[in-house]
Design a protein around this nucleic acid. Sequence first.
DNA 1: GATTGAATATCGACG
DNA 2: CGTCGATGTTCAATC
Lengths: 231, 231
Amino acid sequence: MRLVIAECSAHYTGRLSAHLPLARRLIVVKADGSVLLHSDGGSYKPLNWMSPPCAMAVRPADEAEAESGVTEIWTVQHAKSDDRLEIELHEVFHDSEHVLGIDPGLIKDGVEAHLQAMLAEQIEILGAGHTLVRREYMTAIGPVDILARDPQGAAVAVEIKRRAEIDGVEQLTRYLDLLNRDPLLAPVQGVLAAQEIKPQARVLAEDRGIRCVVLDYDAMRGVDDVDSRLF
Amino acid sequence: MRLVIAECSAHYTGRLSAHLPLARRLIVVKADGSVLLHSDGGSYKPLNWMSPPCAMAVRPADEAEAESGVTEIWTVQHAKSDDRLEIELHEVFHDSEHVLGIDPGLIKDGVEAHLQAMLAEQIEILGAGHTLVRREYMTAIGPVDILARDPQGAAVAVEIKRRAEIDGVEQLTRYLDLLNRDPLLAPVQGVLAAQEIKPQARVLAEDRGIRCVVLDYDAMRGVDDVDSRLF
DNA sequence: GATTGAATATCGACG
DNA sequence: CGTCGATGTTCAATC
């Protein structure tokens, strides 16, 4: 990754044509050849950029260009489209190169943990009179997302997903098999709770006597203040 | 603008929860307090970021954190929402500060100018036998995008828009009123040319005897080589 | 189907 | 009505 701070102007042609007047900016040249032009404000979005795959050609300014203060011209051409970004560099204030390596990338902690925390606090979403036993109720084959009791005191095992598919039903079925062997718990009712339940998952779940509950994330979030306590 | 290259990990909570495992990254702190975390690949989009308005608090690592290699913790809190970005800095490889000043910002040369240039070159799109008089034909109230002549030599005033709405019809109507007072031009026919013409605009235009022409940008672009001459 | 990446457009909020 | 900022989402393409 190359970082350059320089007075520069730029032209972009592609989906549209645009230009950037002369100003001092940050130019980032990434290892894959992509280029970002950032100002000191605005959002996370660069003023202009070229996404990979692309190639950059550098040439020194000709006499006429040098006359107007240009030192180098960088032409960044997209490999597949006609998109082109042309940067005219004037005075350069900083220029450094850094090796970063491959990034493991962003890991979304997922709405699932969030849904679990909120459902635990709003357990009556399962039905009036339900009470929470505990989150992450441990079994030999892993933790059940939520264990609760219905108004009659019968155990309820809840599997939470953002999008419930067949897998989720299978998983919950395994937990139910196991929990139902415990005389202190049996009979255990199963609930599949998710923001979105795929049709096949719903059919399979209901066929197995598992109740499906669609969770309204925004509504739950509006009710609950758990957000601030998640981390 | 502050540029930091460092080993770091990060947590984000807001619309969703996410974390970035330890890796070497570019951290940009803009003058307005916004923060961008970039890897050496991906698109123009940062791995994670915090947009303004926001404030950054820096604190040294406590003993336990220092134990695991953390040197500083940066907490970036959005001013209006609960969005928060927490960055744990480990080894720092580069740290520099730069004053960029206000950026004049991106100027879109617009598809409109492009369409105008192409239509001028492919004026027979208006109909066989049409000839170009000139682009940006000046009038007292501003320039008409294109002035042409039909096969019979009658004047044709063209208003070009990317998306033609009521405004465009009104604008063209004003030009036509003016042009029709010129005995050398009158009677002047009006043409509303656009990639997309809104229904109301079409109705109003046709009601006023203005012809509507839908321009196929890609087809025009395929025919024409004007792209390369725009700049 | 699921998964990945690209988006320089479009929408909505805001002043 | 215009500008600015947001899309931390959506969608298409691809595998």
